[in-house]
Design a protein around this nucleic acid. Sequence first.
DNA 1: CATGAATGAGCGTTCATTCAT
DNA 2: AATGAATGAACGCTCATTCAT
Lengths: 202, 202, 202, 202
Amino acid sequence: MPRPSNTEERRQQIVLGLLRVMSERGYERASVNEIAKAAGLSPGLVHYHFSDKQEILLVLVEQLAARARERVARRVARIAPEDARGKVEAFLDAFLATGADADPSAVAGWVTISAEAIRQPEVRDAYEQVVRADLEHLEGLVASVVGKRRARALSVGLFAAVQGYFVLSASAPGLVPSGSAAHTVKQMAAGLLDTATAKEGA
Amino acid sequence: MPRPSNTEERRQQIVLGLLRVMSERGYERASVNEIAKAAGLSPGLVHYHFSDKQEILLVLVEQLAARARERVARRVARIAPEDARGKVEAFLDAFLATGADADPSAVAGWVTISAEAIRQPEVRDAYEQVVRADLEHLEGLVASVVGKRRARALSVGLFAAVQGYFVLSASAPGLVPSGSAAHTVKQMAAGLLDTATAKEGA
Amino acid sequence: MPRPSNTEERRQQIVLGLLRVMSERGYERASVNEIAKAAGLSPGLVHYHFSDKQEILLVLVEQLAARARERVARRVARIAPEDARGKVEAFLDAFLATGADADPSAVAGWVTISAEAIRQPEVRDAYEQVVRADLEHLEGLVASVVGKRRARALSVGLFAAVQGYFVLSASAPGLVPSGSAAHTVKQMAAGLLDTATAKEGA
Amino acid sequence: MPRPSNTEERRQQIVLGLLRVMSERGYERASVNEIAKAAGLSPGLVHYHFSDKQEILLVLVEQLAARARERVARRVARIAPEDARGKVEAFLDAFLATGADADPSAVAGWVTISAEAIRQPEVRDAYEQVVRADLEHLEGLVASVVGKRRARALSVGLFAAVQGYFVLSASAPGLVPSGSAAHTVKQMAAGLLDTATAKEGA
DNA sequence: CATGAATGAGCGTTCATTCAT
DNA sequence: AATGAATGAACGCTCATTCAT
């Protein structure tokens, strides 16, 4: 009787090992040996479970995205169905109220992934797909407030603000007043939605 | 008669070589040999003019910052002294109206630098110093509109939006509607400033 | 009641797996995992049935030799007992009329084995033993025509030509006119045997 | 004043280092570290002068071929212009009278290259090109004796015999009677040329 | 100032072999 | 018999850095 497969568990360990090492040393400097050590495994095993280092990164992208989607879904679900603005705020809170402050290594990892997306086409594809999905979600929520025509640009703006807070909190942590991110971005959202609604009404 | 020093010219070439290579391959993968080739120089000369690879990066950070400061100064100077809101918009335009679209390699380089700032303390210090200076400038402009008390958080929010647009346009270029960045961020600014002014007035 | 042993069948599968992989990738690059996959077995099983990779190769050498011996025996048996020259030609046909053209992977495998024989003493021993047996067979046939004294050198020459055709057809396949090998080597044999017979008669 | 380039000298050392190590351990087992050691150089320098290990092999193929061409040219040049058969024999002597016996590592290297040609397309191309050039030379000499029509098949046969002697002397050295190779192949040549001439005359 | 050869540590990856099940 | 996860050494290759000229 063969030993029961523990492949998924091992892949998990390795992906989390990459996140840990990468958030401290970046992707290039996260050597496979260190990833293995962080995962408590032998170096050879990493390549038994992943065809190459990039594959680990791609799985990590997907996992971080899934975590975020869950957080968003949970928060948005709590909002009353007719409260369209509340859902937009819930979306933003999901990213900023806990994300940026609560899990610095995930934020650092995400910023690192953004930079890797610039030069690794496969990473870029994965990154774009994740961002596109998030954006479409947000765009839908925004459209309920201001209509479809203006939703795209507004949601990109709000999402950019979120990403920008990630970058600043990871790369220049001393400069972001603690706890201000969610509040400020929601204010931006309110301003954008008001303006757009007013125009729409005109 | 000693030949006139060309040190500064050489350093310039090398720094621009790094920017070029780095925007295509990232910092770690930008080998000194490639930097030298991009600069039209021999590899050995790079270490004659810089003590190590990181020093080139630090100079690049400062140069990109200086370029941005000049663009900002030029635009803000054109605004009527009493038009406080106009100056905020000029600041944002300086970063987004030309920056993100017009010089993709500088944007890619800046995003790469943000990620390197996460793990290289010296890079982080340089990055923070640059961001702090920009933020203080923006904060001053914002304070003229809404007062000192609220200026800090608002300016960080606007600056985050700018950084976020940089990241999105470098890492997921298909997703940012072309030309929308400056307009949207200025809308955000208007909303924030209106809200804050109203509160202040209250 | 113990299940009947399938050891021999498994060893067969593995040896043929090695031949398949080796003819495409060479011996060193034929990984045990690939051999197992080609054999339809699990990697661990390979080392259950063989102590190491080299042992598979040694068995393969013996099997390819056995195949060749059978082909030779079959063809030679068809020749009239008194037709000594006919037997020499039958021997050569056994190697070249079908071998080189009909089973490219066996030819590639044999050429690969020749090269491995240069550095692995155990492989060299196995290879030498096989070649010696073939040579002794051929030498016997040649001796019936020209006498024992000259048979050794002549049979080595003919055998060398056979091996040379193997190499050329495996390594530079475009250069050997299709179907010419058996004919040309038999012409060589005829020339050698004529000359030697004439000298012998003198 | 820069140091004068010694690139060609270094490349020579490295190529000869590969030949030495490869003739003892095969191509795959000839590690870059060992090649460097055999060449008296540091490991990193190998990749400074060659883009990869295969490039060293390709240069070696060309060098071994050049050596052989020179030996052939020297011997053939000594033969009287009208002595067509003598030139064929000189060609064969160039490969077998000294080659096989005198430089075992070159022979072992060549046999190794033949085997590598089976799986590395670039090696195959280089190998085929070398063999084609040699064959065309021999074919021209043979054609002077028997006419163009029969020359191709005969020259391939003789060349195969030469290659076969290389293989046997490298891989099963005990089985080739010392000094017999050149003599036997020349006998084969004589037989082939006689037969073909007779037919041609018919 | 400038060259480009040289160094050696470290990287991602492969792999024969072992072993718990 | 059989599985496939696990190991760790070795490989080809890259690279920041040094240095003789």
